[in-house]
Write a protein that binds this DNA or RNA. Structure first.
Length: 538
DNA sequence: AACCCGGAAGACCG
DNA sequence: ACGGTCTTCCGGGT
């Protein structure tokens, strides 16, 4: 996982963004939204900019982050003239403004030998200036919600913050430019809404984590989020973050694929929900810009609030900025959830719920989904084999289990809220068992059912592999490795554990609490999947 | 052949 | 330095 740090090594950057991809490298940016590292510290002196700024082509928004690819090209040409720089290789700048802003000085130098520093400085100035303006402005469109956050965020403080940029607004409104990025009509919406153009990845759990409570709420909703299928996003937090994710992804990447296409370019977009979104989100590249993609990121949307979206925005936006740990979207499960819960159901060609209540989903287009994931993570060589390996790791922590007998079908053992609420996998493991039950969901039902559940955290009991639960003897052996998964419901600790254990060798995980069973429920629904039986435990 | 499974090693990030 | 989360490979099974 590399997420691209802002400053990716040039090389890396390049790698990641193969031109060929549907998405533009830029897309990737979403991750690094505004927060540009570079700028950070310095207080923005607006002035400097002003000087040359005034000379900027009028068609360019004051905030480079909102520029479309065309704007970037316009800007580069302008820089060539204005600063007497050697000609830029436009092929190296097939990205929107946001993406360009995320490039580090070295990245820029690599793409434009001899002009990197100048370009970097100019961009920094422009960004700073834009930020400054924003601050002044009450709220920026962009992150509406965020705003709240904003203040909070360090960035903010620093000033670096993102820019929420007023521009965004402008963008929306006026600028066509951006539009391009956003291409999608939706974008605009998005913007409005959340604005989030963000890009950011969703804040995934982490971020969210922040609000457990939300989670709860959400949780309940959980997956369903709305329950309806569409919704998705359930969790609030999630939503938010989801938004992000989703958004991007789809588009971008897949863009290519079906859906995207389908949607029509934009299509997709607009997702309903999307409202806001962020486009960016998830990640994928999409984001903003890329023409291709439009992306509207579905993700963005996600945020549903209750329905709608949550404001995801806030956070998202700043993802990068945000100090929060962002896993944002970066986590595979989070990514998948976002796609699954895309309000507009844009990614159904890639992945779709088979049973939302139980958390069972099918990867419709393994290769395409893997590609999206690869884009999201900037691992362009990602394929289903690799992605599925990552999915298998989730077996150990009881996040997922394989639906036996059905190809490309997996089942979430925990609802999003639950996952989100758990910041670390490690915790998951620990909790696993106990936790499992998602509070919310479970709560409902389960509550009674069993359990126990334990408080999340800690409880873990370690079980020995063997023992595990004791319960049943599950032999792991018997069980396929996954068993754990398999018996989702099963979750029974035992099995899992066993399996896990195996895998892990007993790692701690085992903790299983007795409860697993309960947990299993996805949304209240108990998942049994296969094996309930297995439950031997029971 | 395509999946699916996990072990092992390593990358990257916070 | 360390743990988490993958990513990449790989051999093996179905």
């Amino acid at each position: 996982m590399k997420l691209l740090p802002l400053s990716l090594p040039p090389v890396a950057a390049m790698d990641r963004l193969p031109l060929s991809l549907p998405f533009s490298p830029t897309d990737l940016l979403w991750r690094y939204p505004l927060g540009f590292p570079a700028a950070p510290s310095q207080p923005p002196p607006m002035s400097p900019l002003l000087d040359f700024k005034t000379h900027l082509p009028t068609s360019l928004a004051s905030d480079p982050r909102v520029w479309s690819r065309e704007d970037v090209a316009t800007f580069l040409r302008w820089c060539e003239r204005e600063f007497d720089l050697p000609h830029f290789d436009m092929e190296m700048f097939q990205m929107n403004g946001k993406a360009m802003c995320l490039l580090t000085k070295s990245d820029l130098a690599e793409r434009s030998p001899g002009s990197g520093d100048v370009l970097h400085n100019v961009l920094q100035l422009l960004m700073r200036d834009a930020q400054t303006l924003q601050r002044c402005l009450p709220s920026s469109p962009v992150t509406p919600t965020s705003r709240h956050h904003y203040p909070l965020s360090p960035h903010h403080i620093t000033g670096t913050s993102h820019p929420s940029t007023p521009t965004w607004n402008n963008l929306l409104t006026s600028t066509a430019v951006t539009a391009s990025d956003f291409q999608t009509p939706s974008l605009a919406h998005l913007v409005h809404q959340g604005n989030s153009v963000t890009l950011s990845p969703a804040p995934s759990v982490d971020s969210q984590s922040g609000s457990p409570q939300h989670a709860d709420h959400n949780a309940t909703s959980s997956y369903h989020g709305g329950s309806n299928g569409s919704n998705q996003s359930s969790d609030s937090d999630e939503d938010s973050y989801q938004d992000s994710n989703s958004g991007s992804l789809p588009n971008g990447g897949g863009g290519t694929h079906h859906r995207l296409a389908a949607s029509g370019g934009s299509s997709s977009n607009s997702p309903p929900s999307t409202p806001g979104i962020n486009v960016a989100v998830p990640s994928l590249p999409q984001q903003p810009h890329s023409p291709a993609k439009e992306q509207t990121s579905p993700g963005a949307n996600f945020s549903t609030n209750g329905n709608g979206f949550r404001a995801v925005t806030g956070r998202e936006f700043f993802p990068t900025d945000t100090p929060e740990p962002n896993t944002n979207g970066r986590l595979l499960w989070d990514f998948l959830q976002q796609l699954l819960n895309d309000p507009t159901q844009r990614y159904t060609n890639y992945i779709a719920w088979k049973n939302h209540d139980t958390g069972v989903f099918k990867i419709v287009d393994p290769a395409g989904l893997a590609k999206l994931w690869g884009i999201q993570k900037n691992h362009l060589s990602m394929n289903y084999d690799k992605m599925s390996r990552a999915l298998r790791y989730y077996y150990r922590v009881n996040i997922l289990r394989k639906v036996q007998g059905e190809r490309h079908c997996y089942q979430f053992l925990r609802n999003p809220s639950e996952l989100k609420s758990i910041k670390n996998m490690s915790l998951l493991r620990q909790q696993m068992s106990p936790t499992r039950p998602t509070p919310s969901l479970q709560q409902h039902q389960q509550a009674q059912q069993q359990h126990q559940v334990s408080p999340p955290v800690a409880v873990s009991i370690k079980v020995e592999p063997d023992m595990e639960d004791g319960d049943s003897p599950i032999d792991e052996d018997l069980l396929p490795t996954d068993l754990s998964m398999e018996h989702p419901t099963d979750l029974s600790p035992s099995r899992h554990t066993a399996a896990e254990l195996r895998a892990m060798h007993c790692q701690t995980e085992v903790n299983i609490s007795a409860s697993r069973d309960s947990n299993t429920q996805y949304n209240g629904v108990k998942i049994k999947t296969d094996s309930e039986s297995t439950d031997e435990n029971k």
